[in-house]
């Protein structure tokens, strides 16, 4: 059995046909909607590489059944910037050297974006707690912390 799935993704209405009922939101985004930015590192909710915003909440797209996303408002890494300019957190990840292989980066960006929306001036302990569900194997997290701190600083100075 297959279904037709409609969602809003990064502000645009979109639909996917012939979706098998066992597919995840992650599979639909990556393989049916041409949005491979959300990554497939563990596909069991442990690594955070597939993190997206669904209805404003941070979720692992691999754990969301495609049918559960019907009608939902989804934001992926592809939707963080405005098309012309990077979001602040994207720019600070580049500037701080927080990107190595980059496979964890899309999920971390979504999680950090969400954190800074809720808490514009987080302490280090708060940043660590917020990002605890996103594994990174390359950086040892030091420069990821730098990037989040720098984004908080830049965002507060631009307000």
């Amino acid at each position: 059995m297959t279904i037709r799935l409609t969602m809003r993704v990064n502000g645009e209405p979109c639909a996917a046909d012939d979706v098998w009922e066992g597919e995840s939101l992650l599979y639909v985004l990556r393989e049916r909607l041409g949005l491979p930015g959300s990554k497939n590192a563990c596909e069991q909710g442990e690594c955070g590489s597939c993190t997206v915003l669904m209805g404003g909440e941070v979720v692992c797209a691999c754990l969301v059944g495609a049918g559960q996303a019907e009608g939902a408002d989804i934001v992926t890494v592809e939707g963080l910037g405005d098309g012309e300019q990077l979001a602040t957190i994207q720019q600070t990840f580049v500037d701080s050297g927080a990107v190595q292989c980059g496979f964890c980066t899309p999920g971390l960006l979504i999680t950090a974006f969400d954190l800074l929306a809720r808490d514009p001036d987080p302490t280090d302990a708060t940043i660590r707690e917020a990002l605890a569900g996103n594994l990174c194997r390359c950086t040892g997290y030091e420069k990821i912390l730098d990037a989040v701190r720098l984004a908080a600083t830049r965002q507060s100075s631009s307000r």
Binding site: R30, P36, G37, S38, K39, Q90, F93, V99
Partner: peptide
């Protein structure tokens, strides 16, 4: 870096 933070960088699984 720019491609990796925007999701455009094509990994082997993409």
């Amino acid at each position: 870096g720019m491609f990796k933070v925007t999701g455009q960088f094509a990994y082997s699984s993409d």
